[in-house]
Amino acid sequence: MEIILIFLSSAIVNNFVLAYFLGICPFVGVSSKLSSAFSMGMATTFVMVITAIVTWLIYNLILVPYHLEFLQYVSFILVIASLVQFVEMFVKKVSQPLYRALGIFLPLITTNCAILGLALFIVLKEYSFIEGIFYGIGAGVGFTMAIAIMAGIREEIELADVPKAFRGAPITMIIAGILALAFMGFAGMISV
């Protein structure tokens, strides 16, 4: 039960993008097409889950026993950077068009604060290993959901008669704001 609550909490109630405002850069940058937005969400989810696993192991099996907690930022960044490198190689091998569609945003997952945020939240909330994994999956699903909703709306906006001054970035910001407002409606429903 606790695990399901943690999953729902990180995916919807405390959505990383729309409630914590982490990872806004790819949220706006890669959300112009639904297919690439979904792939971006998948790549980020993958990195998040693996990051949750590896950072939990490093923190609890290496850093805590040797009283090296102050190394958490450095070691987490190391983990994230390596993982992103790996994902980049993998995507390039599997799908060249996807690799070019994601472009600079793929290596930029490294500096996506949602991922470092995830690793630090797991430490902060003192989750167990299983809880941490589900927190990571939830965060990834939440990110994918947010970016996919955004991309869906932006594809429709392409066909709408938007006033000239609002075309492009401004209307995107407004949509993001309204989406975040909608997700604020979940605030406080689960407090895990």
Partner: peptide, 8 residues
């Protein structure tokens, strides 16, 4: 610390 980071 050095050993940990180096090892990782």
């Amino acid at each position: 610390a050095i050993a940990t980071m180096g090892g990782l």
